[in-house]
Simulated assay, not measured.
Amino acid sequence: MDKKYTEVELTKYSKEDIISILLTMQKVTENLSKTCAEQKTQLEQVNQNMKLILEQISISKNKRFGRSSEKMIYDGQLGMCFNEAEVTIETKYVIEPELEEVRPKAYKRRKSSGKRDADLKDLPVEIIMHELTSEELKERLGDKWKRLPDEVYKRLTFHPAEFKVEEHHVAVYAGNDNETIIRGKRPVDLLRNSLVTPSLEAAIMNSKYVNAIPLYRLEQEFLRNDVVLSRQVMANWTIKCGERYLSLLYDKLHKVTLTHFDRHEELVLY
């Protein structure tokens, strides 16, 4: 209703016209209130749906890209901690526990007899003697003494990878005629004119394909042992050895597998 009526103008209308105008205005007001309520309800429903969609997207992202490890709480705050040891004791007074507190009283584990010897039975043994000299024995026991069975204990040592250069000297011989020249027998190289040996290439393949160590880390490990081998060189060795030697084994296994597969089909047909 765009036009605004003054008091003087309203006096010109009859009672029936004024009643009609008021009823029309009331109807319009009711329709407008109803429309606003419906729009408000729809807007609330849209906001609720949007909130649910955002929650589902957040849950999906956490499942796909989130960390699988548990998060730890420090001082009431939830978050990841990379220096867990330092943060754990930063503001706490640590009391060293007693042995009785660490070991449960209800369960006492018995040490299995001979387990250590069984674990070490396949490893090479180096016997290291710890003896006293004759002078020390005479000083402490006199001239008369006897030796009892040795007290034996075992320790396990580890020696890192050791590199050694093999320098091959091939003997060269010449006949009296100064024309005939012969050489000593030399082993066949894994790759001609290459530094690589079977043991070195086996170590590279084992590190990369069994232990999942990238070549650039292996390059750094070799460099710490004063051996300069680039990842490109190691990759070239691995590819050539795979094509030249391992491909033969692969082809043989492939043929054997197909043979067994054909036999299986024949048995099924019969």
Rank of each mutant, 00 (worst) to 15 (best):
I21H: 13
P124Y: 04
R64W: 06
Y107P: 00
Q48S: 13
L23T: 08
T29W: 03
Q39Y: 14
L43D: 01
L78S: 02
E139R: 13
E38A: 10
V46Q: 10
I57T: 10
L54V: 07
K108Q: 08
L123T: 05
V94Y: 02
R64I: 09
M129P: 02
M80S: 07
M129S: 14
E100R: 07
E126G: 05
M50A: 14
I127K: 05
L132D: 05
N47P: 00
Q77S: 10
S134N: 11
T133C: 12
L32P: 01
L52Y: 11
A85L: 11
Q42S: 12
E98I: 04
K40V: 06
G79I: 00
E139M: 08
V94H: 00
P104F: 03
I57F: 08
E86Q: 07
K61S: 11
K105P: 03
I19A: 14
P97E: 01
K40F: 01
T24C: 03
T133Q: 01
E30V: 08
L120I: 03
I53L: 13
Q56L: 06
E139H: 09
R64N: 14
R109Q: 05
K115V: 11
A37Y: 01
K51A: 07
G66K: 02
R110V: 15
S68I: 08
E90N: 12
I21G: 05
I59W: 03
P97Y: 00
T24S: 11
I89V: 13
I53S: 11
E139T: 10
D117S: 10
K105S: 12
S112K: 14
L54P: 02
L123C: 02
I127G: 03
K105H: 12
K61H: 08
K34W: 00
E139F: 06
E30F: 03
K71S: 06
K108N: 07
Q45P: 07
S134A: 11
Y93L: 09
H130A: 07
V28G: 03
C81W: 02
A85Q: 12
T91A: 12
